[in-house]
Design a protein around this nucleic acid. Structure first.
Lengths: 394, 394
DNA sequence: TTACTTTGTTCAACCGACAAACTAATAAAA
DNA sequence: TTTTATTAGTTTGTCGGTTGAACAAAGTAA
């Protein structure tokens, strides 16, 4: 059964447009909204009044006159409700409580010692409960919980495979939903990162972009027509496993020469070990942070290593550029900390290898969200779902 | 300015749904349409009557009773108008006149001897005029002209670069539009092929698919959410130039090791030449058809060659599968004639190298449209534009 | 013949967007 | 200061579209 049209659909569309306009351009008057959106003044007035009733917007006072009656300025009520986002990393758990515009109210970061499923679920429950307890009272309360995980998630939010956590076929969604009786969305970490950048980061307002999560492995989140592309089963964007070296190293995915074997943090560290580069004095193993320090100190081997890995990153980006002709590529996750040493080889390869046409309007940027892309994305899923579902019923 | 909602939008949506339902499920009664779409009986009745007035649908007679009054069956009026599609190949020009459902009324195929721009434009004009002259009279006449070209086309229909035709920055759209005073759409050959398969071929009804045009070079057309994805400047899908061998052969695009250097018809023929495989007795150069014949006759070297090229094809498909998680990959263009010798290495590589999750629901099919994918796609652009534009005014 | 179904139309009700007329508030000009 | 023009926001009536109920038409089954 297709989505047919009726007056409720019209109202939903227009009300969304009005709210989005207030969110984006606030403080803004009714008259300006009418001008910007093309909607009639009276339509805007009526919709705005409903939004005020529902506490999604409020009047902040009179604005500057432009030669006539002074406008009544409107603002989005960011604290009509709150949302929770969680990023389950391989050895950490980052959780935030935000208002409806993604402003962080409270944040928890903890290191995971015991990787067992039961332990992580317990930590999840405790952390989320703590955040819920700290949420200021509001009209809509906690509107939802978004969770990002480093693994393969299907279209129903089932976690099929998270190798770095040792999980297979686990239903975190039902567990958390059953425990808190709140809407829960589960998404792959790279997809969440893509949405985080799209809503709160450098991807704001950009229709077609690709987020590349360069972490222990590599994942990508693809934004097409302002929406996350999930593919027919939810598995789109597993570009960490595109073949880059046809006869390259064997990957546990079954393929050979996968991109992430050459361009991820893991790849970098393994090669550093192979070169017998010593770890920092007080650490047992070599770390990314230490490699950056060594490069900063002028360590030639390490600088070459970054060059080499950067070139492989650029090679994968070439595939992305020629395939998607995106307006923006955002590079996120742990490897952003080495931006300084990676940006040159990346741009060199991209400029030499990708199609000039597809590259014309392209920007490549490192995430500015400071490792919060995924958690912001998780939040944005929760908030989007809230608006998509609640507002229909009006 | 965003697309706001009003009653006209609602009507446009619903009328489209009704017409699509008739197209897809006809012969069908008003009552059945109401049931299938969820629209009210009276709404359906009123919209159907308008469609009949406009000659987009007609009543074909009474159907079988299901225990009550016999239904009046409706059919889409495929000949309310006609469309023209042209596929400009590297040495041929294929043009068709079809009805509104893509049924071919007339077809012209001619070989191009003189590749000069002026000559091809002349041929285009003559061929199109001949088809227009042969179109049966109808309410809407020729609704549009769609043209597919082997090259890079921007979002405005400008042909920026067609290496195999020797064209750069030519405005065929304005020329043809000015000459015939009909709407003209220009698209890349692979994008057209993708739409052709989506509307008239094996891709019918499939939301996410990728069409791979294996011809002299390689191009791809990406269907996402039932729509062609063009990217931010119209250049998406240039996957012939994704790097497959990082230190491979130099490509004229500036990159190295591009997919099309290893998996296209050209790649196949060049390697055949390198192996000194002799051409057919009466032909100056080796051809694909002849290689297929040799393979059929058991020529080991040629069979190995097909295996090798097929494996490279599979390698690129792996990238497509892991990136897009499509429901369907359609392989089209000239290399389809070697399906028999390519299908095995392709599936072997795909099964060994692509992610099992992403592959679960995947089908890989060779085009059944017999080299007509692109020309059908060109037609579908013309027809789609007609319905998108005409019907708004109602 | 009667009762029940299914199909398609008609008509009043409703809902939302819109345009025009209105009130309100202000700046600039006389 | 008064007048005029301008901008902001509300009110009112109209228009177009979907909907549901009632109805007529045309059938089946017992």
């Amino acid at each position: 059964m297709l989505q047919t049209g009726d007056q409720f659909l019209v109202k939903k569309i227009n009300k969304s447009i009005v709210l989005e306009t207030i969110k984006k351009n606030g403080p803004i008057s009714r008259a300006q909204i009418s001008e910007v959106t093309g909607l009639n003044k009276s339509t805007v007035s009526s919709l705005v009044n409903e939004l005020i009733q529902e506490e999604f917007a409020y009047e902040i006072g009179l604005g500057q006159s432009k030669g006539g009656r002074r406008p009544l300025m409107l603002l989005f009520n960011t604290t009509a409700g709150h949302a929770i986002g969680v990023d389950i990393g391989v050895n950490y758990l980052l959780a935030v409580l935000t208002d409806l515009q993604g402003n962080i109210v409270q944040e928890t970061m903890l290191t995971i010692a015991n990787l067992s499923f039961e332990n992580i679920v317990d930590l999840l429950k405790q952390t989320i409960q703590a955040l819920i307890d700290q949420a200021p009272p509001s009209k809509y309360g906690i509107v939802g919980i978004g969770i990002a995980v480093p693994g393969i998630v299907d279209e129903h939010g089932q976690i099929l495979f998270a190798p770095n956590l040792g999980w297979e076929n686990v239903d975190v969604k039902s567990i958390i939903q059953g425990h808190f009786h709140l809407p829960v969305t589960i998404n792959n970490e790279a997809k969440a990162g893509a949405m985080g950048e799209k809503i709160f980061g450098v991807g704001k307002g950009i229709a077609h972009s690709v987020y590349v999560s360069l972490g222990i492995g590599i994942g990508t989140g693809i934004i097409i027509n302002n929406e996350l592309y999930k593919g027919c089963n939810g598995f789109a964007g597993e570009m960490g496993h595109i073949p880059i070296e046809p006869n390259g190293k064997k990957c546990r995915c079954g393929n050979r020469g996968c991109w992430e074997l050459y361009a991820s943090e893991n790849a970098l560290l393994e090669q550093a070990k192979a070169l017998a580069i010593p770890p920092a004095p007080n650490e047992p193993e070599i770390t990314l942070a230490h490699l950056v320090t060594l490069a900063d100190e002028g360590h030639h081997e390490v600088i070459n290593l970054f060059n080499q890995v950067g070139e492989y990153i650029g090679l994968g980006l070439t595939t992305i550029i020629n395939t998607f002709n995106p307006e923006l590529i955002v590079i996120g996750n742990r490897m952003t900390s080495a931006e300084k040493w990676l940006i040159n080889p990346i741009t060199r390869i991209v400029e030499n290898r990708s199609l000039a046409y597809s590259r014309k309007q392209l920007r490549i940027q490192f995430s500015g969200l400071n490792m919060h892309s995924a958690v912001f994305g998780a939040v944005s899923f929760a908030i989007d779902d809230f608006f998509a579902n609640t507002r229909i019923s009006l």
